[in-house]
Write a protein that binds this DNA or RNA. Sequence first.
DNA 1: ATTATTATCGAAAACGTTTTCGAAATTACC
DNA 2: GGTAATTTCGAAAACGTTTTCGATAATAAT
Lengths: 339, 339
Amino acid sequence: MKEITLKQIAETLGISVTTVSKALKGYSDVNEKTRQSVLDLASSLQYTPNSFAVNLRTKESKTIGLVIPEVVHHFFSNVIKGIIEEAEKNGYLVIILQSNESLELEKKQIELLINKRVDGIIISLSNDANNEIYLQQIIDREIPFVQFDKISKLIPSSKVIINDQKAAYQAVKHLIDKGCKKIAHIRGPINPQNAIDRFLGYKKALEDHNITFDSSLVYPCKHVTFEEGKEFAARILADHKDVDGIFVITDMVAVGVLAHFNEHQIKVPEQIKIIGFSNWFMSQVITPKLSTVDQPSFEMGEQAFKLLLEEMHARKEFLPFTPRTIELDTSIIERESTF
Amino acid sequence: MKEITLKQIAETLGISVTTVSKALKGYSDVNEKTRQSVLDLASSLQYTPNSFAVNLRTKESKTIGLVIPEVVHHFFSNVIKGIIEEAEKNGYLVIILQSNESLELEKKQIELLINKRVDGIIISLSNDANNEIYLQQIIDREIPFVQFDKISKLIPSSKVIINDQKAAYQAVKHLIDKGCKKIAHIRGPINPQNAIDRFLGYKKALEDHNITFDSSLVYPCKHVTFEEGKEFAARILADHKDVDGIFVITDMVAVGVLAHFNEHQIKVPEQIKIIGFSNWFMSQVITPKLSTVDQPSFEMGEQAFKLLLEEMHARKEFLPFTPRTIELDTSIIERESTF
DNA sequence: ATTATTATCGAAAACGTTTTCGAAATTACC
DNA sequence: GGTAATTTCGAAAACGTTTTCGATAATAAT
C-alpha cells in the first residue's frame, strides 16, 4: 500500500516520467492515445500528485496564513468564514493563528507563517500593536500581504477596512436624532486605529450638532469585555446622572451595559438610549434588542482574500503591484435600545 | 535578495552542505569550531530551512487539517481555539475547512486534506452525515484521525466526546427536581448521534421519575436555528397548554424559545422552565439568564489534538496504535430560566 | 612502528515533481 | 527522393533538504 508516483505509472506503461507528467498536465506534445492511457491508469490508481514535491518545485504551497486576535468572536469568525470560502474557491487553504491580543505572540505567529513559506498573509492587528516594524519584514520579503479591520496605516499593504469615523458619526447622529442631549462614549483601547477613529467620529458628530464635547464622558476600555461594559455602566450612572445616550465601541461591551441597566431597573431606551457597534448576533436576541452599526464581516473576509489573490498573481507573473485599499459600507440598524 | 540555502552557507564557509546541515541539527560528528561558525553565519543571514524541501524529505508537513460544520458558532470556535493552541505548542499548524453541514462538501474537504498530505485530520461530522464510508479511506490510508462531538461510532478512530445521554438525563432531572411535570423536548435532527443520545437521556429521565413518555412532546429541529426555536415555542404553546418545562437541544434554539416567550408574556421560569445545552456565551447575558449544560469545548479541542499527536507519534515510530476514546465531563449550570 | 580507535568530513542518493532542450520519428511539401 | 516541418518523446537538471556510508586524518594503544 505505497503512494502512487509518476514513476510507477511511467514504468507500468513503459514510458517516461516526463511524458506522464505532461499527459496529466495537458501538454500538447503528447499523443492522444498515450495521454488517454496515462489518464486512465492514473485515475484507476487514484493518483494524486505529492504536494510536497509540487511545492518544492513550483515554490508555492497554495496555502495562506491568517493571524487574528481571537477566534472566539462573532466578528472574526465571520471574517474567517469569508476568507476560507473565498480561498477555497481559488484553490487555496488557510492556516489560522491567534495573537490573543498579545504583541509577542503576534510577532511569533508571523514568523511561523514566513518560515512555513505560505503564499500570502492576511492579518488583523492586536490591540497592543504599537510598533509594527515586524510587519515590514513581510513587505521586505515580498510576501503578498493584506491587513483588515485593525490595521497599521504606516505599512504600505493592501487593506480592507470600514470607515470607522463615518460609521461612528452616523451612530452618534442617530442618538442625537432620537433626542439625546448628553451622550457618553465607551471607547476602545488607546492604540488601535479603529478605536481612535470611532472616537473622532463621536466627537465630530457632537460638534456638528452643537453639543460641546466633554472628555469626562469618554470611558476607555482595556479588555473590551462584557464585564467592562457592566463596570462602565455603573461608573457612568455615578458620574453623570443625566446621561441620556451611550455610544459603545462594540456590541459585546454594549450588552454588558445593558445587563447592568436591566439589573438596576434603568429603562432603556426611555431613560438612556444605547447603540453598539458590529451587529453581533447576540444583539438581536437580548432584551431590549440592541441598535448597532452593521459591519460586513463576511464580505470583509472575501475582499481581503481577493486582494491577496491579486497580489499573489502579480508576484507570480512578475507584474508590478500597487497596494489597494477597499472601504466597505456600514449601516445603522435601529432596534429597541434607541426607539 | 535571494533565499538563503544550505548550499550558500556551505560555499561561503568552504565546507560541504552535509556538514552545514549536520551542524544546524546538532549532529555529534561535527567539530565544535565549524559548528559554531555555521551557527553564527546562519543566524547572521537569518537562515530558515526551506519547509518545502524539508516536507518532501521527511514526508511530513507539521500541519494538520480540521473539518467542522461551521466556524461561526460559539462551541466550534472554542474547539478551534483549543486545537490551534495545543497544536502550536507541539509545533503544528492547523488548516481549517467547513462542511457547512453538507455531506458533499464534507467529502470534498476531506479529499482536499488528504491530497494536501496533512499529518493528521480532526473532524466533527455534519448533521447530514449518514453514510460515512468516505471516512474509512482516512483509516485505510493510515492517516492519524480523531473525531469529536458529532462522531460516527462505526469508524474505528480516536474520539473525544461527552456523554450526551447522561448530560441530557441530568438536564431533564434538573427540570423534574424543580417541579416540572410535563416536559417537552426540542430535539436535534434525526441523524446525528448526539441528538439521538440526548433524546434517549430525556426519555430515560422521564421514565426513571414516573413520567410517562409522550412522543407528541418531542419536536425535531431541522436547522437548529434561533428562528426554529421561536417556531417551536409557538407550536408547543398551541399543542400543549400545560407544558411546564422544555429541554432544548442547544442554547441557540433555546434562546429562540425564550425570545418568543418574552414577546408573548409567557413567564419564564414561573410558567415554563427552560434548560438549554452547550453553555453558549449568550445564555448568560439574555433575560432571563438561561440554565444550560456546560460542555467543555476548549478542552475538547485540546484533547482532540493530544489524541491526534499520540497517533502521529506512533505512526512515525512504526509503533502499534489502538484508538482511544476520551469522555469529558459536563455539568448543569443553573440560572434564572429554571429558578 | 604498526595497528586500532575516534573525530571529522563529504559524496551521493533520495524525496517526487516540473520543465527545458534536444533527439527521433513521422508527416508534409516540392 | 530529398528536404522541411511537425509530432512525439525522454534525458537530465533543478528545487533544498536529510541521511547513509565510506574516506580521511588525528589520536590512542600495543
